[in-house]
Structure formats: C-alpha cells, structure tokens
Amino acid sequence: MSLHEVFRDCAAQRRAALIGYLPAGFPTVPDSVELFRAMVRGDGDTAGCDVVEIGLPYSDPVMDGPTIQTASGEALRNGFRVRQLFDIVSTVAETGAAPVVMTYWNPVHHYGPDAFARDLAAAGGLGVITPDLVPDEADEWLAAARQHRLDRIFLVAPSSTERRLAMTAGAGSGFLYAASVMGVTGARDSVSGSARELVRRTRAHTELPVGVGLGVRTAEHAAEVAQFADGVIVGSAFVERARQDGAAGVAEFAADLGRGVRRNSTSIP
C-alpha cells in the first residue's frame, strides 16, 4: 500500500490517519521491533497506527526536545547502527502498516542518498521525513527518491511564507508534515491554534494530505487535530509511554489514539 492509498482509505472512513513515531533501536533493536509492532496492533477493539514513523537515531537532533533526544542517545549508546534500520523497516512493513523513516540529513548524506533510497525501498519503506532538509537543498535527494519511488515528506511551519508553502508542497509527495508550533518535538498540554491555521494555509497550495505533529499527546488532542488535519502525528508521547509501560502500554496508547482519530469520523473536516 502506498501513502496515497493509506490517506485515501482513511478519508473514505472520514477520519484522519494516525501516525506514530519511535526511534529505531530504542531502547535496543529487538525491543524497538516489539514496540513498533505494538504501535500498529493497538488493542482487540481498535487498531493502532496507520503509518509508522521510524526515527533514525542521530547524534545531533536539533529539532528534537529532551524526550526524543534522550531516547535516540540511548539507542546509539546501545549500539544502534544505520544498517539495522532496514531490517526494522521490513518488520514494520510486515505488520501491514505503512513505514516511513524520519531522519536528519547527515546520515543519509553519508550513506549516499541513492544507496539509502535503494535500501529503504527494498526493505518496504515508503518515504522519508527530512526535518533539516528543505527542498531548496534537496535536488540529490529528490532524484534518488524518485528513482526508487519513495515519498518525499517535507515540513511546513507556522513561519513558512506562502511562497515557501507552495514550493514545499510542489516538491513533496505522500503527505506534508505541518509543525503545529514554532519549537522542537515534545508533548505539550495543548495543541496550538496555529496548527489549524497552518493546515488551512497549506491546503490552499496542495491536494496532498497534511499531517500535524509536535505536541500531540492525548486521545483528546488526537480527536481535536483529526477534525482539521488528514493525519495526526504522535512522537514524544509514545516514547514516554514506552518508557513507562513497555510494549503493552504502547499498544494500549495506540488504541486510545486510534479511538481519538475515529471519534468524529462522521464529521466532515
């Protein structure tokens, strides 16, 4: 299934897609595989994530707050290597969820953009979210991703100008990642009103689905964001839940969030 199909199917159910993030190899590679599976499984009642965002742990994650920084650091200290990413992606693909990778640019630059795209596609990955690569600098990546049929998921932010929203939407595929607030990743008590405005502004430039991330941490938030966005992205809150309650907690939380994005499924966004 492609990302396009995932969002199309969710739209047919009149709901937003649930997108869950965890770092690969956190706390260890086998543990992270269990966490990713739990994230997709949900509970007996409600399925979990439609899209799984597999974070590539990086030494200098400037867009991440303390929760994800610490988790990524732990993965690296426990010996995570980039080559292990692709096996994890395969495992996630086998669950039936849509795997995408979220990575800072340097590890891809170092691996070689074309080789990275090739290996990711071969493992069943569908796309890459690039928090510190804007389309202005992405020629090599765009070529590699097109060559290997991967989606190119760029970020838009409240500070993005109309011209940049249009340019970014034009370069992206799969979906656009809307950063709900000006800031780094991390669970917040409320989801900023700027998210709704950013989604509205972005939609004026594109037919691509728009996912909202940064700060979503409860089923309530998820339900709220699902009313105006095509995807609800949850990261730091999954990391926190994994720390507290392991795979069982992650499965339960994913189901809660799944109910959140389905709560208003009869309303038209």
């Binding site: 510190d132 940049r164 950063a179």
Partner: peptide, 20 residues
C-alpha cells in the same frame, strides 16, 4: 544567492528557521 561556496554551505536547516 543560496549561500553556496561551490558544493559547500547552503541551508540545511529546519523549515521553521528559513524565514528568519
């Protein structure tokens, strides 16, 4: 104009900071 000295430089930054 994009800040490139040959193949070096540029702006490998989060979109949120590009406007600034």
């Amino acid at each position: 104009p994009g800040g490139h000295f040959g193949s070096y430089g540029g702006r490998f930054m989060p979109e949120a900071l590009i406007a600034a």
